[in-house]
């Protein structure tokens, strides 16, 4: 029979010698010194999962999953993390261009008007607030309207409704 660390292929012998049991700290030290990055990744991910399971148990009163589930989740999180860093590398080397948007309100062009529309919400009762404000090229406020609506499916619809009322 082989002793393993949380269902992982990592072997560990915490109690090889009864008079002097290997403590976790020493074992971890050995692993860090001797093993490669993949092994360390796995240990850290498993430790994180174990801690998470412990917190779920202590603070949310949830039952314990099997050791195997814990190990698979750890493997998945390593995979996800590595994929995410590949994606990050990719976006850093060839960033997708986002159109430059104004960060400060600007006066509309001569003789024109500008309508600013926005929504807020939903609040706890599901109400959405919507507002439109129209200003002219002399920076005068021409018209302002705001209203409150219950029950809209999402913010896109809300934004469009704000625009519609403004028009």
């Amino acid at each position: 029979m082989k002793t393993v660390f949380f269902a992982s292929p990592l072997g560990c012998k915490f109690v090889t010698n009864r008079s002097c049991p290997l403590v976790f700290r020493d074992w971890l030290e050995q692993m860090i010194m001797q093993k490669g990055i993949e092994v360390l990744e796995l240990i850290l991910a498993i430790c994180y999962e174990v801690r998470k399971v412990r917190n779920k148990r202590c603070f949310e009163g949830q039952g314990l999953p099997t050791t195997m589930t814990c190990f698979t989740t750890a493997l998945n999180s390593i995979l996800n993390f590595n994929n995410a860093s590949v994606l990050l590398d990719h976006t850093c080397s060839s960033p997708t261009q986002v159109p430059i948007s104004n960060v400060h309100w600007s006066t509309p062009i001569n003789g024109g008007y500008k309508l600013n529309a926005d929504v807020a919400g939903p609040d706890n009762e599901g109400r959405w607030g919507m507002a439109d404000i129209v200003r002219d090229s002399d920076e005068y406020v021409v018209g302002v309207v705001c209203w409150c609506l219950p029950l809209l499916p999402n913010s896109d619809i809300a934004e469009y409704m704000a625009m519609l009322k403004g028009l």
Partner: peptide, 18 residues
């Protein structure tokens, strides 16, 4: 499309509406 900072007036008014 503008950044939220450029749309503050409408944003606060919408909050006021709620």
């Amino acid at each position: 499309h503008v950044r939220r900072e450029a749309n503050q007036a409408a944003h606060y008014l919408a909050k006021f509406a709620i």
